[in-house]
Structure formats: structure tokens, C-alpha cells
Simulated assay, not measured.
Amino acid sequence: MTADRINERLVAWADRIGLYHGRLERVRAADFGSLATLCYPSTDDLDRLTVPARCALAIWAMDDHYCDDPGLGAEPSLLGSRLATAAAVLGKVRLPDRHEGEFDDATRTDPVLVALRSAVTYLGHLTTPTQLDRTRHSLCYLFTALAQEASWRATHHRPRVWEYLVNRQANSFLPCMTVIDAIGGYHLPAHLWADPQVYDTVGIAGLASCVANDIYSVDVEDHGAGEDFNLPRALVEERRCTPKEALVLSAELHNDLMQRFHEQSDALRRRGEPELRSYLDGVRDWCAGSLAWHRSSPRYHPRTSPDRPPTTRTEHGHHT
């Protein structure tokens, strides 16, 4: 099975790099192989699908090692500095020759940085320079949102719903979605990616996927510690509703966003650009695949997890 073979490659890659040291079972259990096969159905090529799976694992590992899990080395006071260095290893930093070696020495001992650099290098073998730059930019955008969350934790700030959703525009799955065309073997031209209508439509889909992630993350986040941020929690605090009501409101928002995505996507398809039609189909498939993966991945369903979250949709009238 392709997903299982990808998972074995990821475990070997993580072991070689040093990610999740002593906890490699978490890599296999998360099943990023299924995430790749579900989200990029335009290909069944094992090598091509392993590329976004590595990228996904590197991003999730950064979240665990830097932001969430003290057992893996997460330290809030170091997050800003670590994220700035992570942005540098993506390939945009230029140093004087005598300092280049120092930078390389300092960054090759951090498994998260090694994973990010390795994943982006593999991605570069499949992409054009503009496609690769698109992904780098979205990753840096993600890093700014993670830094914002760190400031919220440091000041014990509880964001308003609008404020949280602004953060989620950046702290999103957009890096994974930027590679849809590269994995599919075609190129969405730069002028189409930069088109405000296209970017807005993709952003809506990305936000919807993040809302779904929040819904499925509720049961595994430690609300009692007061350190986690998600949409249901923000709704509970702002609207003084029950957690169950907040989940329903979150699911309704997800479905409204997906409805808006489909409407805008249909309008864009009528423009006739074949690459744009293919990419929008890929975004639709990515959202459906991500939702299916969240429903099955042990990362979001520990054995003690209570009833499943409310229903979310990816297509008009179709539940996945």
C-alpha cells in the first residue's frame, strides 16, 4: 500500500535526522503517508508523494519540537529566535563567506532545521523556481503566526474570534497547498497565483481546513493549561457558550467557508485557464483529503477520545 510505504520512508528519514528521538512510533502512527495519498490524488507515484509527506512531517515536527511539547525541547522563550533561524534555512539567507560555515555548523545539529532544509531540497527537485519560492514564502508567513501565538502565551492573552481567525490565515495549511500543481506535474503560472481572486479563493479553502483541524484537535489539546488556541475555545470565551455549542458553530463556519470556496471557484473556472481549473480541482481534493485524514489519524483520535466532532463538508451537500 502506497501510504504504508511512504510512512516507512518517513520513519527512516526522521530517524536519520533525529526527529522525535525515542518517539518514532508517533511518526508512523500519525500516518502522513495517508495524508499525502488522500490530499494529492492526481498522482500515485511513490517518489512524488513522498515529497509533500516529508514537508508535512517537517512542519508538524517544528510545531511539536518548538511550540507544543517540552519533552521534545519546546521552550517559549526561544521560539522567536528559532523561527527566524528556520526561515533562514529555507534558502534565502546570504552571509559573508567566513560566517557561512558557522551558520551551517549551528543549524546542522537541530533536527527540525535539518528536516526543513531536507524537505525543501527534495521539493526543489520537482518544482520550478517560482513554485519553490511560493512555498518558501508561505512557510515564512506561517512562522510569523507561530510567533504571534508565542506572544499570546507570554502575555496570557486570549484572542478574540476575529483576531484568532486572522492568525489562522497565516498559521494554515497553505504551504501544503502551494505544492498541489508541482505534485500533479504542471505549473500554475505566477500571475495566476498572485491574482487577488485566486489567492482569496485558495485562502478561504485554507482557512476552512484550519477550522476543521481545530475541531478535530479539541479532544487532544490541554485546555486546562490555558496554553492552546483554537476556534472552539475562542468562541466559548467570547460568546459564553458551551463547548458543544462552540463545536457546532465552528462546523457551521467551516461549511460556510467551503460553500464560499465552491462559489468563487466556479466563477474562476469560467475564465477558462486550464492550469487554474486543474489547480482549483486540486484545492478541492486537498480539502477533502485533509478532512478524511483528520477523521482517521491517531494524532487526533487518542483511545480516550469522546464522540466525533460535528459534521463538516467539503462539497455541496456531500459529507466526507
Rank of each mutant, 00 (worst) to 15 (best):
T2H: 04
D4V: 01
R9D: 12
R9L: 13
A12S: 09
A12E: 11
A14N: 05
D15C: 07
I17R: 05
I17L: 06
G18S: 04
L19K: 02
Y20I: 08
R23K: 08
L24T: 05
R26D: 05
V27M: 14
R28F: 06
R28N: 06
R28K: 03
F32V: 04
G33L: 10
A36K: 00
T37P: 02
Y40E: 11
T43V: 11
D47W: 08
R48E: 14
C55N: 07
L57Q: 04
A58P: 02
W60T: 05
M62E: 10
D63P: 07
H65S: 02
G71E: 09
L72V: 03
A74Y: 01
E75A: 01
L78T: 05
L78I: 05
A86D: 13
V89E: 08
L90E: 14
L90F: 03
G91V: 06
V93D: 02
R94L: 04
D97F: 11
R98D: 13
G101E: 06
G101T: 14
F103D: 13
V114E: 13
V114Q: 07
L116N: 03
R117I: 02
V120G: 02
Y122V: 15
G124L: 05
G124C: 07
T130N: 10
L132M: 12
R134F: 15
R136K: 14
F143R: 03
S151H: 09
W152E: 10
R153E: 14
V161W: 10
Y164C: 08
V166H: 11
N167G: 12
R168L: 01
F173S: 09
M177D: 08
M177K: 10
T178E: 15
I180W: 12
A182W: 14
Y186F: 15
H187I: 04
P189S: 07
A190H: 01
H191S: 13
W193L: 09
V202P: 06
V202E: 06
G203Y: 05
A212E: 13
A212Q: 12
Y216E: 00
H223D: 11
A225T: 12
P232C: 15
L249W: 12
H254K: 00
H254D: 01
D266F: 12
R269V: 09
R269P: 03
R271L: 14
G272T: 12
D281C: 03
A288T: 14
A292W: 00
W293N: 00
S296D: 15
S296W: 00
Y300V: 00
H301D: 00
R308F: 06
P310R: 02
P310A: 10
T311S: 10
R313E: 15
R313S: 12
E315C: 09
G317P: 03
H319V: 08
H319E: 09
